Computed example of a mutant assay.
Amino acid sequence: MYTTLITAPELNTLIENGNVLVLDCRFSLADAGYGQRVYSEAHLSGACFMHLDDDLSSPITPKTGRHPLPDVDKLADKLRSYGLNNNLQVVVYDDCGGAMAARTWWLLRWLGHDAVAVLNGGYPHWVQAGFEVTQAVPQAEPGNFAVSLRDEMNLSVDEVLKSLDDQSITLVDARGAERYRGEQEPIDPVAGHIPGALNRPLTDNLENGLFKSAEQLQAEWQQLLGTVDPQRIVHYCGSGVTACHNQLAMAVAGITGTRIYAGSWSEWIREPARPIATIS
């Protein structure tokens, strides 16, 4: 069972044996139709498409961030329509270093499905390795996946706010350093970060489009966190998507038990009374 990363040759073997569900999660924040277009042009054999806004998130409300968690029943129904069973290996991919695919990886684990991995290097690495792509859209027999929701994997905004007083968690911000420091904010209306948060840009997990080795990731995360118990670590980002990349990177390094604040910065700033911090 693959639970963190899988290589292109390993995935190719699974596809040839017909015992894997592959999910294409390509998406662009600047162009919501991008993923469906490139999926229609070419995708991995047998891959089904998942849209970040339509499938992996729920509608935005005045109180939520930009990518609220999806409705559990709706997401489970979609996955079952693609043939998901509880014992089936799932592999997810994108074309941006896992930044989008990691969201699906986390969501499946949130639903109780552990056999899910991210294709290391994603679509570009798959093509570079010379493996097959197709335009054919698969027709799957519906699966019987049963949800076993793990609510404890996600913290609410109120739980995060409370932690500022009792210091029960250590927040890690996955956004770029300029956004974390409050020097610029190209997406959300308020710049800065949640007070006390550390910064680990998700791009630091990658080298040449691939995740760094487990040993290197372990050393880098330990340098950032010191002796902090992993169960105290809570990841966030702009909207709860790329925070999952940092959790995945820690899991690759063998550091498990961390959680996600899915509402993230775009939810945090919905209420002006919530404190923010900047670094000048």
Rank of each mutant, 00 (worst) to 15 (best):
R103E: 07
D73A: 12
N144M: 14
Q89D: 05
W106K: 04
V137D: 08
L52Y: 05
A136W: 10
V118C: 08
I60F: 07
G97Q: 02
V90A: 06
H51M: 10
A42T: 01
P59G: 09
G122N: 01
F49M: 06
V116N: 03
A117F: 06
A146D: 12
G130K: 09
G130T: 04
N144I: 12
H43Q: 02
W106C: 11
A47L: 06
Q139K: 14
K63S: 15
K78H: 10
F145L: 06
W110C: 05
P70Q: 09
C48V: 13
G97L: 12
M50Y: 07
A115H: 05
Y82A: 13
E141V: 15
R80T: 06
E141D: 13
S57W: 04
N87F: 04
N120T: 12
W110P: 04
S45T: 15
A102T: 10
A42G: 13
P62G: 11
W126Y: 04
V118E: 05
G122Q: 03
V91P: 02
H43D: 00
L44V: 06
Q128P: 00
A146K: 08
D73E: 14
V90E: 00
E141Q: 14
D94F: 13
P70H: 05
Y93W: 02
H43R: 02
P59S: 10
Y123F: 14
D54N: 14
Y123D: 05
G130Y: 03
E132G: 03
A42Y: 00
G83T: 01
H113P: 08
M50E: 09
V92G: 06
H51G: 01
A76H: 01
V90Y: 02
A102K: 04
Q139M: 14
G46D: 05
G143F: 04
D77C: 11
H113I: 08
Q139G: 09
G121P: 08
L44R: 00
A102F: 09
S81N: 11
H51D: 15
L44K: 02
S45K: 14
G65H: 07
A76L: 05
L69D: 09
A129M: 12
H67I: 08
A102H: 04
G121C: 07
S45A: 15
P62R: 14
S58E: 13
H43T: 01
H67Y: 10
I60N: 14
H43C: 01
A146C: 12
V133L: 02
N144E: 15
H67D: 10
K63R: 14
F145Q: 02
G65C: 12
D55S: 07
K78T: 11
N86W: 00
